[in-house]
Simulated scan of single mutants.
Amino acid sequence: MNLKSNIGKYVKLELSGKKLLSGMMVDVGSDLCVLYNGNDYLYIPTVHIQNWQFLKKDEIDEFTLSNDPTPIYNHNEEISLRKTLTSAKGIFTEIYVTSNQALHGYIISIMNNYFVFYSPIYKTMFISLNHLKWLIPYTNHQRPYGLSNASLPVNPSNITFARSFEIQIEKLKGELIVFNIGENANVMGKIQGIKDNFVELITAKGDPVYLNLQHIKTVHMT
Rank of each mutant, 00 (worst) to 15 (best):
residue 2 N to V: 13
residue 4 K to N: 05
residue 5 S to N: 14
residue 6 N to R: 14
residue 7 I to C: 11
residue 10 Y to C: 14
residue 13 L to F: 14
residue 13 L to Q: 04
residue 15 L to D: 09
residue 17 G to Y: 08
residue 18 K to H: 13
residue 19 K to H: 05
residue 21 L to C: 11
residue 22 S to C: 11
residue 22 S to I: 11
residue 25 M to R: 09
residue 26 V to Q: 12
residue 27 D to S: 15
residue 27 D to V: 00
residue 29 G to N: 06
residue 31 D to V: 01
residue 32 L to W: 01
residue 33 C to R: 07
residue 34 V to K: 00
residue 34 V to R: 00
residue 35 L to Q: 03
residue 35 L to E: 00
residue 35 L to P: 01
residue 35 L to T: 01
residue 36 Y to H: 11
residue 38 G to S: 05
residue 38 G to C: 07
residue 39 N to Y: 15
residue 42 L to T: 03
residue 46 T to M: 10
residue 49 I to W: 00
residue 51 N to P: 06
residue 53 Q to W: 12
residue 54 F to K: 02
residue 55 L to G: 13
residue 55 L to Q: 14
residue 56 K to N: 06
residue 57 K to Q: 09
residue 60 I to A: 08
residue 61 D to N: 15
residue 61 D to P: 03
residue 63 F to I: 08
residue 64 T to F: 09
residue 64 T to C: 11
residue 66 S to P: 00
residue 67 N to K: 11
residue 69 P to F: 09
residue 70 T to A: 05
residue 71 P to L: 08
residue 79 I to Q: 12
residue 81 L to H: 08
residue 83 K to I: 01
residue 84 T to E: 00
residue 85 L to T: 00
residue 91 I to Y: 11
residue 98 T to L: 08
residue 99 S to K: 11
residue 100 N to Q: 13
residue 100 N to Y: 09
residue 101 Q to F: 13
residue 103 L to T: 00
residue 104 H to N: 15
residue 104 H to Q: 15
residue 104 H to W: 14
residue 111 M to V: 07
residue 112 N to A: 15
residue 115 F to D: 05
residue 117 F to D: 06
residue 117 F to H: 00
residue 122 Y to A: 13
residue 123 K to C: 05
residue 124 T to P: 04
residue 126 F to H: 07
residue 126 F to R: 02
residue 127 I to Q: 02
residue 128 S to C: 03
residue 128 S to Q: 05
residue 128 S to R: 02
residue 133 K to N: 07
residue 134 W to H: 09
residue 134 W to I: 02
residue 136 I to S: 07
residue 136 I to F: 01
residue 152 L to R: 01
residue 154 V to S: 10
residue 156 P to M: 12
residue 158 N to V: 07
residue 159 I to N: 02
residue 162 A to P: 02
residue 162 A to R: 14
residue 167 I to W: 04
residue 168 Q to V: 03
residue 170 E to S: 12
residue 171 K to M: 11
residue 176 L to F: 07
residue 177 I to L: 07
residue 178 V to G: 03
residue 178 V to K: 04
residue 179 F to G: 03
residue 180 N to I: 06
residue 183 E to G: 04
residue 183 E to D: 12
residue 184 N to W: 09
residue 188 M to V: 14
residue 192 Q to Y: 13
residue 193 G to V: 10
residue 195 K to C: 11
residue 197 N to A: 09
residue 197 N to Q: 15
residue 201 L to N: 05
residue 203 T to V: 03
residue 203 T to M: 07
residue 206 G to C: 10
residue 213 L to Q: 06
residue 216 I to A: 04
residue 220 H to E: 01
residue 220 H to S: 01
residue 222 T to F: 03
